[in-house]
Design a protein around this nucleic acid. Structure first.
Lengths: 205, 205
DNA sequence: CTGCGAAGGTGACCTGGGTCACAAAAACTG
DNA sequence: CAGTTTTTGTGACCCAGGTCACCTTCGCAG
């Protein structure tokens, strides 16, 4: 079945155990899966779609951390699940999304029983930790133009398309800046032949 | 012995195992323990002193992530150790420091044998992940004055002293800004009676 | 086709904070 | 204690990027 397919590193027994005890769930595009301060009782594995993980400030600012796609899991939900503490971030379905929710206790028992699960968890931490490091690099050391370029490239990479369907406003939210700034910078990039601009779309060249 | 003392959550057997197989090491103040790009083969537990974990940019910028004190461990070294990959950060002894190095294979076997070790590792990930989140919050959403305030408070907290022995230049490095900016902001804080300034020292009020 | 809302463009202006140049203390050294 | 080094203070200036005001363009619904 699907778990097998998206998580090929899992042992057969592990796949079965998850299949038997975990809960499948669907979210439609735009739905909030988890919000700041919410109590977490399960970890999330993504089967289909895309989930956006971002941080919200008290003053309504918003800041993209990373996206989760099929075959990936939310490190934060893992950590919190184990500690059964509250989330510090918001998760939103960017597209229609299908996930498997693994409750706290199951998580524990899988951990001691299946080496491939343990390794998957470690791998997940590692990847997300790295991702956070690169986020920090970007905001600490780079200017807006470089950050925008990085953002577009990453987006294109992860979605596999060169045509990025985002309005300037949406990009601005993700980078915690204003629409005008993004418009100006994109215009500059267009003049340098790095992108081509359309309504609600940016094409990377 | 000391491991027992600084890591009271460890089972007796675990303490013994570490005592027997891991290596004690000392670093003097200012020594680099681990640098960006270096291959990591062991995890570090801190017994004495203080270690500063920071990120370096290509252009020589520097950016503090967090400090490690007695009883704490380096999450990054754990993750990298397990993956036997390279480090993305630099670790420097801030004071004379004593650590225990736990080699990769030992790490693995402790993980499956001792529940208290497994929990310690998870706990460490959690703490550091949170710390990174708050670092991101700060640089993404806050201005320099708030960041400086946060920085000083954290420093005071962690060292347990209200007298902070740092030059303006050192603070500036940690926050990846310039000395002048820190001087100006500290002066303003002094006028607002939040701190008192001395040479090479800041006192939090 | 018209009218309206959403997206994008643009100029004017402001501010935080980075940079430069230099002065004044403070501390260390012979 | 005269000279040197380190730290701190400060004014002048600049630039990225945030803010505001307002315009244009596109696409859609009636």
């Amino acid at each position: 079945m699907t778990i097998q397919q998206y998580f090929p590193s899992f042992e057969k027994d592990l796949t079965d155990a998850i299949e038997k005890e975990a809960v499948h769930k669907s979210f439609s595009a735009g739905e909030i899966i988890m919000r700041t301060g919410q109590y977490i009782k399960s970890t999330i594995l993504v089967l289909q779609g895309r989930i956006k993980i971002y941080r919200e400030s008290d003053e309504g600012g918003e800041f993209l951390m990373y996206y989760l796609g099929p075959g990936e899991a939310c490190a934060i939900s893992m950590i919190c699940a184990i500690q059964s503490s509250t989330s510090e971030v918001t998760a939103k379905a960017e597209e229609d999304t299908e996930v498997v929710m693994i409750p706290l206790q199951l998580m524990e028992s899988l951990m001691s029983k299946y080496k491939s699960w343990y390794q998957f968890v470690i791998q997940t931490y590692r990847t997300r930790f790295d991702e956070l490091l690169s986020v920090i690099d970007n905001i600490a050391f780079r200017n807006m133009d470089e950050r925008l370029e990085f953002y577009l490239k990453r987006y294109a990479n992860e979605s596999g398309k060169k045509l990025i369907s985002l309005s300037h406003q949406e990009i601005a939210y993700d980078l915690n800046t204003s629409r005008e700034v993004i418009s100006r910078l994109l215009k500059k990039m267009e003049q340098r032949n790095m992108v081509k601009l359309y309504r609600n779309m940016v094409e990377l060249l």
